[in-house]
Design a protein around this nucleic acid. Structure first.
Lengths: 222, 222
DNA sequence: TGTAAAAATGAAAAACATTTCATTATTGTT
DNA sequence: AACAATAATGAAATGTTTTTCATTTTTACA
C-alpha cells in the first residue's frame, strides 16, 4: 500500500513512517499542503493522511483543493481539535474519515482499512460536468432534475464516460454495446447518439458528445 | 429515512427524535440492546444509532450480535468514552462510525450521510441464496447463467432484498416502486410478482417470494 | 365442506423502446 | 462552388414491457 502523509511534526511523521514500513507498506512524508498537491500529480496513492494544522494550507484546505481537482483518493484527516464544527467541516469538505490525536497506529490501520474497503468496490456513479450518471437507477442527475435513460442510452453514456477524451469508433460501439459485428446495415448507433444528445441537451447547452468526421465520437467533460 | 436509536438517556433520545422529525425523517427509540434486535427483525432501518452504555447489553455487544446475525445495517456508536482502545474495538466489531458525546444534531446528520454515502457506493450487488442481483446491469447472476430483469422486476427484487424477512404489503410496494397511492384499480403488483417469480424459477426450484394471505409478501433467502 | 375474500394467471391492450428507412444536412476534398 | 462520403434527423415499423381485465385458483374461516 502506498500512503501519503502530510504532517509537519517530525516525531509523529517518523513514527508513522516506521510503522507503515514495519507492516509492509510504503509511506511518503511531506511537510505542507502544496507538497501534497505536487505529490498526487506524480504518483497514485491508496490513501492520504492529512494533518489538520500545517504551514501554508490547513488539511481542510488541501482536502477541498484535491476534490476540486477531481482527485478521489481516500483522505483521512488527523486532528488534535475536538470542536464539533471541525468534524462536520471535514466530512463536508470531502474527507472520508478523520482521527483525533492522540491515536495509536493500530487505529490508523483500522481506519485506513475501513475506508479502503468502502472504496475498493466499484463506484455506483460516474460524474461528468455538473452531472452524475447514476449507475443503479440508470439516470442522469443534476442538482434539481433527473432524467431516466433508456437502456441503450445508458450503456452508451457509460461507455463514453469510461473512455472520455478518446475517439470512439462506431465499430467499437457496435461491438461493445450491441455485441454486433461491423459492418451494420442500418444506423442504430447514430440514432442512439442522437437520442442521448437530446436528453443531455434538455439539461444544458453544453455539447458533451463531439463528432469526429470519419472516425467516430469523442466525449468531452470539464 | 428510517432511523433506529438505542439510547437510555431520555433527554438525548427525545432531542434526537424531535430533530429527526424536524428534518423529515422518522426515528424509533428503544432503551436497550434486546429491543434493538427485536426491532430490526420487524422493520428495515437505514441506519442504527447505538449508545455505548446501555442496560443489559453494551452497544458494542449489540453491534457484534447484529453482524453475527448477518444484519448489514449501517451502525453508528454514540460514546462518551475517549479511550483509543474503544474506537478500535468499535470499528472491529463492525460499526461503521462513532460519535463522541457531546454531539450536535448537525454532526449526527453529517455522519449518517457520510456513512450512507459509503454504504451505497460500497455495494453494486445484493446476494441472495446462491444468486446475486447485479445493481448495475439489473440482472440476476448465478455461477453459469444470467437473467436480465425488466425495470419493474428489478426494482421489486431490489426492494425485497433490502427488506428480506419482513412482510411487505402491496400498499407499500405500490407507494415505493410505482409511486402510486393505494387503492389501485388493477393488480399490476401481483402481475409483476408473478413475472419475477417466473424468472427466478427458471434458475431454481427455491421459493423466494412467499405470499402472506391478506397481508402481503415476504422474501426468504438463506 | 361451502363460501367469500384474496391471490394467481393467461392473454389482450396500451405504452414505451429499439431498429429501420428515406430524406436532409454537414464535412472534407477537388 | 461541386461532389461524394459521412452524419443527423423525423417518422414508420418492429419488438418489448407495462398495465389492464376476465377468469381460475387458493386461502381462511364459518
Amino acid at each position: 500500500m502506498e500512503v501519503l502523509i502530510a504532517e509537519d511534526e517530525q516525531s509523529i511523521a517518523n513514527t508513522l513512517l516506521k510503522s507503515f514500513a514495519a507492516t509492509g507498506n510504503h509511506a511518503v512524508i511531506v511537510g505542507n499542503g502544496e507538497e501534497v498537491l505536487d505529490a498526487v500529480k506524480k504518483i497514485r496513492f491508496d490513501v492520504i493522511l492529512l494533518d489538520w494544522r500545517m504551514p501554508k494550507m490547513t488539511g481542510l484546505q488541501v482536502c477541498k483543493r484535491l476534490r476540486e481537482l477531481q482527485d478521489q483518493t481516500p483522505i483521512i484527516l488527523l486532528t488534535a481539535l475536538t470542536e464539533i464544527a471541525n468534524k462536520v467541516e471535514a466530512l463536508n469538505a470531502g474527507a472520508d474519515d478523520y482521527i483525533t490525536k492522540p491515536f495509536s497506529f493500530e487505529e490508523v490501520l483500522a481506519r485506513i482499512n475501513a475506508v479502503l474497503r468502502r472504496f475498493q468496490s466499484n463506484t455506483n456513479s460516474l460524474p461528468f460536468g455538473n452531472f452524475i450518471l447514476n449507475l443503479i437507477t440508470h439516470s442522469v442527475e443534476m442538482e434539481t432534475e433527473t432524467v431516466k435513460l433508456s437502456e441503450k442510452e445508458f450503456e452508451l453514456l457509460k461507455f463514453f464516460l469510461l473512455n472520455k477524451g478518446t475517439i470512439i469508433s462506431k465499430e467499437v460501439l457496435c461491438e461493445k454495446i450491441w455485441d454486433i459485428h461491423y459492418p451494420t446495415t442500418t444506423n442504430f448507433v447514430e440514432v442512439t447518439v442522437k437520442n442521448l444528445r437530446k436528453k443531455l441537451e434538455d439539461f444544458t447547452s453544453q455539447k458533451f458528445i463531439r463528432t469526429v468526421y470519419g472516425e467516430g465520437y469523442i466525449f468531452f467533460a470539464d
